[in-house]
Simulated scan of single mutants.
Amino acid sequence: MKKSLMSILALAAMAGGAHAQSTVQVMGLLDTYAGSIRMAGDGGRTSKVGSGGMTTSWIGFKGSEDLGGGLRANFALTSFMQVNSGVPGRFTGDTFFSRDANLGLSGGFGAVTVGRGLAPNFLPTVIANPFGDSFTFSPLVLHANVGLFNGTGWTATTPSDTGWSNEVIYSTPKFGGLSGNVHYQFSNLDSTTGNSGKKNIGVNAMYFNGPLALTGFYERDQLNNPVVTAFSPANTKKDWMLGGSYDFTVAKAFLTYGQAANNLTPKAKTTSVGVSAPVGAGKVLAAYANTSLDSGISRKTASLGYDYFLSKRTDVYAVLMNDKITAKSTGTSFGVGIRHSF
């Protein structure tokens, strides 16, 4: 009896020790706004309650296990969602865990992650503009990642989504303030289709040193995401950007320049500038992006907003945006929203 009791206590202690070395978190972010949206070329305006005014809403699980010797196993399963309606995904047809669905190892060598994760373009684009990852009001993000389906024919300059499926990512250790990622996406398509060798490849880098931040990325893409298919007609698209910011304390300045090109559409050249300035318990945000096509068409978008922090995890914001495309009607949008992370 004593031996049995001792065995049970030993197993319980071992289980407790193993549990202490593992972590699993339920986490996410909710963002919703009310306003009126009219993009360049829209026939009219849409008054709406929307989701993701400043950040796309998401929820999910992340975790890691300490394997000893500095080695860790990591996983992430996170899903985008639309707070205004409760619908999962960013849009109709989006995969359920389109934000993250990956597993990997990390240690002194850096990290290797396999599954669905970020594309090379995402982090540099977010870092180098004052509106961060706003797919509603950030001029740079709108030009790079959001096509217009209103007769203007305007397509996003980023070739293939902000996340890639069937991906292997190698993340370097930090060297001072410098780090980077190498991305490779497999097609997972049958060889009989002739597309099994298609792939997306890319790299990015980030450098942080006090008030200075520098970043950039390069992509060479042949595949669509999040549902993986080869570009049709067969094509290879290239996209790159360099950007940075400098915090002068009274204000933080942002600047980017990039190009996107392929065999079928005019080359796009995008310049963006921005500034954020602390005012009271929040920040004034201002940004402008200009994308010029070799065809002579250009798009100019400007946003002005104020983001007020109620706490470290909750903020409220108001944004006014103007959007213009050559020979198309001008659009003006505004929104007032709230964001909460957990």
Rank of each mutant, 00 (worst) to 15 (best):
Q82I: 00
R45D: 06
S47Q: 14
V24K: 07
A101Q: 02
A101L: 04
G104W: 04
K238A: 05
L71M: 12
T92S: 15
A119K: 10
W240K: 00
M27V: 10
S333A: 11
S295I: 07
W240Y: 08
A119E: 07
V319D: 06
G28L: 04
M39L: 11
K237I: 05
Y317Q: 08
G107A: 08
T291F: 01
P130A: 10
A268S: 13
I37V: 14
M39T: 10
S187K: 12
F131S: 01
T32C: 01
T136R: 06
H183Q: 06
S179D: 13
N262W: 01
D133K: 03
F186C: 06
N204S: 08
K312I: 05
T291N: 12
T125C: 11
N224A: 09
D221M: 10
K3C: 06
I338G: 11
T265D: 12
V250Y: 06
G280S: 06
K328R: 13
V146E: 14
S98I: 06
G180Q: 10
L105K: 07
M206W: 06
S79Q: 10
K267G: 00
G110D: 09
L223H: 09
T249R: 00
L189C: 05
A101C: 02
F122S: 09
L123V: 13
L304M: 12
T256R: 04
P130N: 12
L242N: 00
T330E: 14
D315I: 04
G210I: 02
G117E: 06
Y306H: 13
G274P: 01
S171V: 03
D247F: 01
